[in-house]
Design a binder for these strands. Structure first.
Length: 698
DNA sequence: GTAGGGTTAG
């Protein structure tokens, strides 16, 4: 019986054909014109009624429409499938593909098992589909079993099957096996090579990608856009600008600049090779920018520490109504962390929640790191607890965050909890652990961890770990032992190591080793002004004013200028950057007045700037800069005139909080009733009601 | 009908 098309929604079936024409050209009719499940339902009903279900071509097309073409109708496909008495292999294949597309690889594997139980013979298509499912699931065991069956059924030499096999092994972490399959192939197409590239990329074997690419150039396969995307990604990771630029020329020459994915990988390559502005000009020329392109550019700025530009670009992205994803937010948060932009980052967290983004491990860890780097360890811990999945990095961030926020013991508690959960620590974890010992003054524990990391975990200490040990010993007053420790290091100590020792000498007033440290430092970094000042301050602290002045004049002779301290302050979400002696800031005059008023107030409340450093600096600096001598004071003052009492003022960047500043800030927090969070390199000082929570300040 | 690709945290 012919059914008139008027029974079906006119929007979807507009042809003048009738359903009776289905057997003649069923595919175009159903596949191309069926737009909703409702359409499908009507056709299905008709097919059942007219007995056409027995026609495998019709059924397969119905299945394909529901499992693959129409989104969200896989259950419908399954219902049709179950009505079939003896489904053909093709019917199974369609459903397996459908499950793959629907991100249900486990169901695909289950269906394949069912297929085998029902003794339905798989064909070559079945195997590519099912291997794809295994690859997605990282189901190595199943994949291996399937490889055995491929051989058994004689499909082992099919190119398509082998390509998926390579992909499956590589995605399951077996790049070596993937490579063996690759090497044993008598003929390799572009996709074969690309599958291998993707395998090496997945396991971060970037050198292998470039190496294999040069081999590919020697062969006569040629390469395509997909190849270039993989190779460009590798160039970025390796900093191989030369090859990257070569590919750029090729892309221009061949007129491939219209491929958004390709240009995005070019942008990523340039940004990661340090050519952020080149990346930006490519980005600006894009006729269309999707979320990945935006994210690549934002992360480019973020990784180049051009955080302000990263945030500006994120803002622009929102203006253009491009929905950011979890990955975008990771770079944005990382920028907030570096800048110490607490209010902005908190807003980002709110935004993430509002958009119901998934708290992935990466996003969660970026959030944790952001809170920890803004001195808000409670929030960091809260995010950690809410994360459904945590990895070594999440634990490491927590341990480091607790350590730098003065909770060394708690950091160590989390380290042992991490061990109980069988999370394997790595080299970075131990930097956190050692810095926790240093902050908590746990010298013996520090020594024990240092030995343990190699003995129990097979992690060879790097120079950073040696640096931590010097800090632990030096802060603990064991200056001589710290000095011997440096002498016995298996590698050449760097400036950071000697500077750590020098800083300890300043705390514990050790002139002799302090002098030796500076001698070493001058060899390594002769123009680092802070080092001379540290030694000068050591002399001052023991009353050797002449020597202190001598160091300062030596500096002058060598033409070494004090590098202006930079600080930034966040007030109600706005970020202001200050450099010492900075008169360029539009509010400078206002700030100067405010500083003077503030100084009057805190002096009348009992604050006397009287330390040795302050006295020396006052003699050293010209009058004009005496007010801005400590840029943090300036910033605090700016906060004072802009915020209401009770507002937390955050000061970040690489300031060094000297004793004088520390005391001044204490007074300010008391007199003006402010909570002030100061980030002094990697440590946080929380000033509240006239005292600071840190226990390691001298 | 079947295979490969760009952005992410310490």
């Amino acid at each position: 019986m012919a059914v008139s098309l008027s029974l079906l929604p006119s929007k979807t079936l507009t042809a003048t054909a009738t359903i009776s024409e289905f057997p003649r050209n069923p595919k175009t009719l159903i596949l191309e014109q069926c737009k909703t499940i409702k359409d499908l339902n009507q056709i299905h009903a008709h097919v059942v009624k007219t007995g056409l279900l027995l026609n495998p071509t019709i059924t397969e097309n119905l299945l394909e429409s529901s499992a693959i073409v129409l989104p969200g109708s896989i259950d419908y496909a399954l219902a049709i499938f179950h009505q079939l008495e003896e489904p053909e292999p093709a019917a199974y294949n369609i459903l397996i593909r459908g499950f793959n597309l629907n991100h249900n690889p486990e169901k695909a594997i289950l269906l394949f098992k069912q297929m085998r139980e029902n003794s339905v013979e798989p064909d070559k298509y079945t195997f590519s589909c099912i291997l794809k499912a295994c690859s997605r699931m990282q189901a190595l065991k199943e994949g291996e079993q399937i490889q055995a069956q491929i051989v058994k059924f004689g499909f082992g030499s099919y190119g398509f099957v082998q390509n998926t096999l390579i992909h499956m092994y590589a995605n399951c972490g077996k790049v070596g096996v993937a490579r063996r399959v690759f090497d044993e192939m008598p003929e390799r197409g572009v996709v074969t090579w690309n599958s291998m590239f993707s395998g090496y990329s997945k396991s971060a074997n970037w050198e292998e990608v470039v190496e294999l690419f040069s081999e590919m150039l020697k062969s006569d396969v040629g390469f395509d856009e997909v190849t270039m995307i993989s190779v460009l990604t590798a160039c970025g990771r390796l900093g191989n600008l030369e090859l990257g630029e070569w590919l750029n020329d090729y892309i221009v020459e061949k007129g491939l600049t219209g491929n958004l994915n390709l240009i995005t990988s070019l942008i990523d390559m340039y940004a990661k090779c340090g050519k952020v502005d080149t990346a930006r000009s490519l980005f600006d020329k894009l006729p269309r920018r999707d979320v990945v392109a935006w994210s690549a550019m934002i992360s480019g700025y973020s990784q180049a520490s051009r955080c302000r530009e990263a945030l500006d670009l994120f803002h622009e992205m929102q203006m253009e109504n491009v929905e950011p994803n979890e990955i975008t937010m990771v770079s944005v948060l990382s920028s907030c962390a570096v800048m110490g932009a607490f209010e902005i980052g908190k807003w980002v967290h709110f935004f993430v929640k509002k958009k119901k983004m998934k708290l992935t491990v990466t996003l969660g860890t970026a959030l944790m790191d952001f809170y920890a780097k803004c001195g808000s360890i409670e929030n960091s811990l809260e995010v950690f607890k809410k994360m459904p999945l945590k990895n070594v990095m999440s634990w490491t961030v927590l341990i480091q965050g607790l350590a730098s926020n003065g909770e060394g013991r708690k950091a160590l508690e989390f380290f042992s909890l991490m061990r109980k959960k069988n999370i394997e620590p790595n080299d970075v974890t131990f930097i956190g652990v050692l810095s926790a010992c240093s902050h908590a003054g746990l010298i013996n524990e520090g020594r024990e961890f240092f030995i343990s990391m190699n003995r129990d975990f097979g992690i060879e200490p790097r120079i950073e770990h040696y640096g931590c040990m010097v800090d632990i010993l030096g802060r603990g007053g064991l200056i001589e032992e710290a000095y011997q420790f440096i002498k016995n290091m298996p590698m050449e100590p760097n400036a950071i190591v000697w500077r750590t020792l020098l800083a300890s000498c300043r705390v514990h007033k050790n002139v002799k080793i302090g002098e030796e440290s500076l001698k070493q430092l001058v060899k390594l970094e002769p123009t680092h002004s802070g080092d001379y000042i540290l030694l000068s301050n050591i002399y001052a602290s023991v009353g050797r004013w002449d020597d202190a002045m001598k160091v300062r004049s030596e500096m002058k002779e060598k033409g070494i200028k004090k590098t202006p301290g930079c600080s930034s302050i966040e007030i109600e979400g706005g970020l202001h950057e200050f450099f010492a002696e900075d008169s360029a800031h539009p509010e400078s005059a206002e700030i100067y007045d405010a500083v003077e008023n503030m100084m009057k107030k805190i002096k009348s409340a009992g604050y006397v700037p009287n330390t040795a450093e302050a006295r020396l600096d006052a003699e050293e600096d010209d009058k004009e800069s005496s007010v801005s001598h400590h840029s943090e004071k300036l910033a605090i003052a700016f906060g004072l005139i802009r915020t209401s009492p009770g507002t937390t003022i955050r000061i970040s960047k690489n300031l060094r909080v000297c004793t004088d500043c520390h005391n001044a800030t204490k007074m300010i927090s008391k007199v003006f009733n402010r909570e002030i969070v100061v980030r002094d390199r990697n440590r946080f000082h929380h000033f509240k009601e006239g005292s600071c929570s840190c226990n390691d300040y001298w």
